[in-house]
Nucleic acid binder design. Structure first.
Lengths: 345, 345
DNA sequence: CTGAAAGCGCTTACAG
DNA sequence: CTGAAAGCGCTTACAG
């Protein structure tokens, strides 16, 4: 019922090894034999058994993708990283084994120990991430999206969140703003080790100090309507603030209706700049300029590096890389020179 | 370097077959030997090679998941189906091979022909879906989420969109509404074979006829701000309409700001009912009552049936099922008795 | 209760 | 340019 390379060989009148070589091209084969083998493959509908090939070659042509859907984090953002990884893997000839279970360390151990994959990509890496020690001990290479506290023996890719924080502040400062509010992810995310939150925030605070301007940094909620309330409270608490920085998807999504309710116009009454992906902005139809978080680019870079390490013999021993993507500001017209302070109106 | 069952056997002082049986429990093993084998496994850190096991048993313990991210469709909705499938598969002992490429038929053929999976779940199935013939010819069973035109030899799971359409109309009718607007997905989705769109719409139209009320059925855009404009146009065009039915995520997401701009209050000025998942409502903080689309339940049902077919010997020949999930209305308070028609104000 | 051996379907040195 | 054979790491009849 199931056709094997033996069937192909028989149909082509050659040995199994010749059939195999004809298909792999790993040694010279006469044009005629190659033709007969290819014909046999076609007429029998042969495809190599992946498990058998993996056993013989120690290559699965599968990459493990470890996603983490954490509470208080924005699931659709994760999807974009996943698609970046998946698309790039396919281009490079790999399939994706997806693990979404809560216990990422266990999943990682399972798929690496059993040799189901040639390498793995970890998404949403935390400051202290219990998957990392397992990855370091694994026989397969791995690539991270997200910067952990300890990058030793790891290839790491992440947005340069510190630069993003500075860029937000500088952009506003250049326009003339002197008092800003930054709404970060919920504190819970920070406590869990979401380093990108404090990397952006700390850098923004430092840059505000350097520029001599005021920055009120706050943790926002992760859900509406609570996050909308937070935004309202902050706008009440700091009437002198003329600019709003958002490192919090839920806050960005909630802001339009908050502005509407308060009768505020962007950028006339308030300048706004966010940090999220272009796709996210499209999805939520957000009219705010933003630092593009480029999940597709990061996923792509991680897979490229991973495949390099998997496939090149030297790759395994090349020095490890920690690569930061420079933030890019997508101008959607939501920032401008500060108008009269809201405090004065 | 890599530890095999031979190493375990040697360390335990038994044969490889005994080691294997001790681990699988497929034949009686003395307590002492079992102990020695388990100790060896632990001290050596043994995990069976998945490819070798698959080759020997013809079981991969992997389920293929074919997602389709189509233009004009709402990607985060797809994610919820994926997570339902992935979580249930893991509970049942299966890993997920994820294929997201545009050419789903090719992906399906690749993973089934090469025996990478024991079965496959197809998401977002269209009326005429070129993956179905490939699935029918595949040696592995499959389960669909989404109702195709031809269900023969297939297990199919879907929301009962016709009942959903009737339910929306009846709910409004019972409250006293006599003129309604239905905004469906974009026409493009219909042309591509997104049967759920016309299943809901046709049933809603028929039910409106039965009830003797007016229903204006329209295709909406898939993106803001276009979809917001459509909503505005419709509200202008049908001032007598007192209820709005939404089978279009983008429209649901856009509606709050449209209502806000027009100064309409729900349900006083307009009753609204949507069709989307609870998770979607949470994500977008939508205050509208809705027919729950239950992606997690559907993913779970599909995997359960698939695994039943994979694992039980009779399962392979059990009659095929087409199962519709009954819609449930989640009341978020956005419908009520019609106020004075907007036309009169 | 345990072991020796065959076999799953490939690939790849080894020989010619 | 091609073939016979070994081997990848498992599982499972077959024998005892």
């Amino acid at each position: 019922m199931v056709v094997t390379i033996g069937d192909v060989a028989r149909a082509a009148g050659v040995s199994r090894s010749t059939a195999s070589y004809a298909l792999s091209g790993k040694r010279a084969i006469s044009a005629e034999v190659r033709q007969r083998v290819n014909d046999a493959v076609r007429s029998l509908g042969y495809t190599a058994n992946a498990g058998a090939r993996a056993l013989a070659t120690s290559e699965t042509k599968v990459i493990g993708l470890l996603a983490q859907f954490l509470e208080d984090e924005f699931a659709p953002a994760m999807l974009q990283y996943m698609l970046g990884v998946s698309d790039t893997a396919r281009e490079l000839g790999y399939d994706i084994l997806l693990a979404t279970e809560a216990d990422g360390a266990r999943a990682l151990r399972r798929i690496t120990d059993s040799r189901m994959v040639d390498g793995v990509v970890l998404l949403n890496v935390a400051q202290e991430d219990d998957r990392l020690d397992i990855l370091r001990d694994a026989p397969q290479p791995g690539a991270l999206v997200g910067l952990p506290g300890d990058c030793s023996e790891l290839d790491v890719f992440d947005l340069d969140f510190e630069e993003a924080g500075r860029m937000m502040v500088d952009h506003m400062h250049a326009l003339g703003h002197r008092e800003l509010i930054l709404v970060s992810q919920p504190q819970h995310v920070v406590e869990r080790g979401g380093a990108y939150v404090w990397r952006l925030q700390d850098a923004a605070l430092e840059q505000a100090r350097v520029r001599g301007i005021t920055l009120h940094a706050m943790y926002g909620e992760s859900r509406q309507p609570a996050v909308g309330q937070t935004l309202n409270d902050l706008l009440d608490a700091y009437p002198g603030a003329t600019g709003l920085l958002l490192n919090n998807e839920a806050a960005a999504a909630a802001l339009p209706s908050v502005l509407h309710t308060r009768g505020l116009t962007v950028p006339k009454d308030l300048s706004v700049i966010g940090r999220y992906s272009d796709e996210f902005a499209r999805l939520f139809s957000l009219p705010f300029s933003s630092i593009e978080s480029a999940p597709d680019r990061l996923g792509r870079m991680a897979v490229r590096q991973l495949v390099r390490r998997i496939e090149s013999p030297e790759g395994r021993n090349e020095p490890y890389v920690v690569r930061f993507v420079s933030p890019e500001l997508v101008d959607r017209g939501s920032t401008g020179v500060p108008g009269p302070s809201r405090a004065d109106t």
